[in-house]
Amino acid sequence: MNSKLFRALQAFRAAQCPAAMVTDRTTGVQALVTADQVSGELDLGEETLAGVRRLLAGDASGEVDGLFVRVYGPPWTLVLVGAVHIAQALAPMAALAGFAVKVIDPRRAFATASRFPGVELIVEWPNEVLAATPPNARTAVVTLTHDPKIDDVGLIGALRSPAFFVGALGSSRTHARRKARLVEAGFTDVDIARIAAPVGLDLGGRLPGEIAASIVAELVGARHGRPRQRP
């Protein structure tokens, strides 16, 4: 791979622009393809290019006309509302499972770098953050604070977005009260049914690390089209 092409790929990835590296495995000659650009020394015919862009749109690596196509899709992101104890376990575990993790908490005492080393922390209200950078279809939002003032505005922001997963920590009783507040705020039963609550697979654990593992497990299933069925 030409290092210029590699740097171009890294630039597209940094900009969260989906890109495909197309390789002739006999010669090693390559082309870098996005939805509207092509660069590199490998000449792609019109039909081949269309095939590459089909894989790009479907976010799937594979082969087109004997060429190998590696698709680099946008990242999967997990937005955690609440810089709480469970978030300290969940943030690194979710990162290992392939999520770019952001933690939002307006409470400065909770959202500190010493409590979350290396994690992107946003000390603002979740509604403001989610309005400014709306979750996309590769984003999961999970609320963890148990404080309706903070969690509810996070859930409302998530429900107004195409986030692939919306989850909330808290007991079934807490969730029943939460549902009532969301109905009051104008959300329908269909909207509210998007919320996975209590979030996490039912593994029986109570330690923060156990709860974090159950949440990561549910997120992985959701990402791969195997949602947890709730009664």
């Binding site: 590699f6 799937a60 594979g62 082969e63 899709g73 990242p75 999967w76 990162a95 392939g98 999520f99």
Partner: peptide
């Protein structure tokens, strides 16, 4: 014939691996 495409990969692994390669 084109092979069936694969499942999406996570971006975070790419960040770590390609980031190291860039370094």
């Amino acid at each position: 014939m084109n092979l069936p495409p694969s499942a999406p990969l996570s971006g975070a692994d790419d960040d770590a691996i390609l980031g190291q390669l860039a370094a």
